[in-house]
Design a protein around this nucleic acid. Structure first.
Lengths: 188, 188
DNA sequence: CTTATTTTGCAACGTTCACTACAGAATACG
DNA sequence: CGTATTCTGTAGTGAACGTTGCAAAATAAG
């Protein structure tokens, strides 16, 4: 899985996988059927539905701590030196040659899924009165996802943990400003 | 240039270039020498030093309008429907197979150059008293660059201009919060 | 017009790619 | 132990890749 995360779908050849997994190509195909299917398994292993840092953050009781955990925990994961940098869903299939577009689309679908989870959590907080009525969940979630995607690229560029934490803190300032602005609108 | 921007370095084959440029491979090589050199030319065309939206924004007189133009103008460019989505420096060489790392490194160097330009502009604003003394230029520029990189991925995912503008507004809230926090620190 | 230059088409080159067939070797199971 | 299953190594397949050589065709220049 880490190879696809680090090098992307096309950046990893069957030969590299043989060497990494220590098995012959024939067994690879016997076990997985195709490079595509192997990639899918790798993605599923990276992004098990319900068990990601995002999923865990979304289950926290208060939306401010949800947002904080969402950004912090993902940032921590992106800069974790023991794993490839960034988010696999963002970086593993950006560049694809003809015929491989479906690979990138699967990752895009997962990114959308995550974005919608975040939006729905914010909607819930608005319904529950935890956030102002005039809060725009779509915009807020877009902003948070933008920061996460950007952190992923920054992690790939060698961003340190301290830098990532600093970026998260700044981004939380942006979140708080969103909430304040919505509160002011809700009062007028 | 647009093909590399849209598909990335390895996603564009010489055959595709032949068809797009309407010339034979032989002439391609006569003119450019290699695919690498052609890519370099494309990058230089996309990112002429001193003439990018970032460069133009950095020349504005007041730092708040610098930051605003930086985010808005880049976001506009990333979602411009007449050009490929996102920032070429971010998306054109994320996934590279063995032997092509130097391609990605050139783009990373350009990203670093831009990040440093932004940091230095913020440092200048601190020196000139336009920003609080306790402002951290490195952190502030990291935050801005993170937002830009994230917007690039969002643009690739089909983000509309309105969504991008909304994200920029939220991110500006984060910038303002950074300034406010630094001002509070500077007073204590 | 002639000559020089550029471009083209063709046919490679050597390499890499994902994938397959198959006999033999290795391992697992009863 | 014998049998079944899995894995291996080998030798491909057909396609794609970036690049090159070269004669002929096309274009540009004087």
């Amino acid at each position: 899985m880490e190879m696809f995360w680090r090098h992307g779908y096309e950046g990893v050849s069957i030969k590299m996988l043989e060497e990494r997994l220590g098995i012959a190509a024939t067994s690879l195909y016997a076990a997985f059927g195709s490079k595509d299917a192997l990639f899918d398994e790798a993605v599923e292993m990276y992004d098990p539905d319900g068990a990601t840092p995002t999923d865990r953050a979304l289950r926290l009781p208060h939306v401010r701590e949800v947002v904080e955990a969402l950004l912090r925990d993902n940032a921590e994961a992106y800069v974790d030196p023991t794993t490839p940098a960034g988010c696999m869903l963002v970086v593993a299939a950006v560049n694809l040659s003809s015929g491989h577009d479906h690979v990138g689309e699967k990752l895009a679908a997962r990114r959308r899924r995550d974005s919608e989870k975040i939006r729905r959590r914010i909607e819930r907080a608005v319904r529950d009165g935890e956030l102002p009525r005039r809060m725009d969940p779509a915009r807020a979630s877009s902003y948070l996802v933008t920061v996460l995607h950007g952190l992923s690229i920054q992690a790939r560029d060698g961003c340190t943990r301290d830098e990532a934490v600093g970026i998260v803190t700044a981004a939380l300032g942006g979140w708080d400003a969103l909430v304040d602005d919505a509160a002011a609108l809700s009062r007028s």
